[in-house]
Design a protein around this nucleic acid. Structure first.
Lengths: 138, 138
DNA sequence: ATACATGCAAACACTTTGCAGCACA
DNA sequence: TGTGCTGCAAAGTGTTTGCATGTAT
């Protein structure tokens, strides 16, 4: 049978995501690992992030217009993205499990899940009181 | 004062989005316009899509791992993405206006909005009963 | 007349892929 | 020992940008 192997690199990627607790990008993960293992390749990082996400050992967190991020926390929860600095944070909102059932007229559609993404301004950026510009539509 | 101009291209982009009612990508919009105006540039299409979305005349609809799509319907509503064919459809779910208020501990965070994206299988793809493979994590 | 918009091509950011050699099981 | 994995570099996708020219106001 076709098995997957436990390579050092795969383990390093998993550890890096678990260590970088603030929703790291693939690049963040790459850089952390590269500190000690300078020979690791970005391709390997990408491949393992995808594999681990598929396995459910980490979660892919995507917001619009930016690189995907990864989350060590696999339990259901939602994310907030600061439109000014791009930072991603967890949101204190209980799982909205009933949302799927609220959808009407699902004739023929198989709804298997959903995601909620909040956006706005984070405390750090709100503090700066920057000139308010027309909000980006993303 | 600095005003925006009503160019033919801008009007064409708006009309194209309103005509292509099934959440077209920038490329779809480009191709529709190019049928009659072969000299239009992709850059212009992208620029005007972004501008119109910022103005609120159309909506940007983004799902993970695919090109952005655009929606002539600007009223609040949610989208479903078929994980097999990539198609995007509207979801019959009333606006969940209360969701923002349900978030606890927003200390310092300014929540200005949210989006909900559903995923699963569309009727056409569900019918085919393709061999089920391990779901993509996107 | 003038500044915003266009078309073109090149640049960009992020991610995936082909391939030859490597190393886990 | 064999095949899954790696590193490298190149390619791919979707989008943005610099610049000279065009055009709406």
């Amino acid at each position: 049978m076709s098995t997957s192997r436990n390579t050092i690199q795969r383990e390093l990627v998993l550890q890096a995501v678990q260590q970088l607790r603030h929703h790291p990008t693939a690049d963040d993960v790459y850089h952390l690992i590269a500190q000690d293992h300078s020979s690791i390749s970005r391709a390997t990082v990408y491949r393992n992030l995808s594999l681990l996400a598929q396995r459910g050992q980490i979660r892919r967190v995507s917001h619009i217009g930016t690189a995907d991020r990864f989350d060590f926390a696999t339990r259901p929860h939602y994310h907030f993205r600061c439109e000014k600095c791009g930072g991603v944070f967890d949101v204190a909102l209980p799982p909205q499990a009933d949302l799927l059932a609220k959808v009407d007229n699902t004739d023929g559609f198989v709804l298997s899940g959903f995601d909620i993404r909040f956006f706005g301004t984070c405390p750090a950026c709100a503090g700066h009181k920057k000139a308010k510009k027309k909000p980006d539509d993303r």
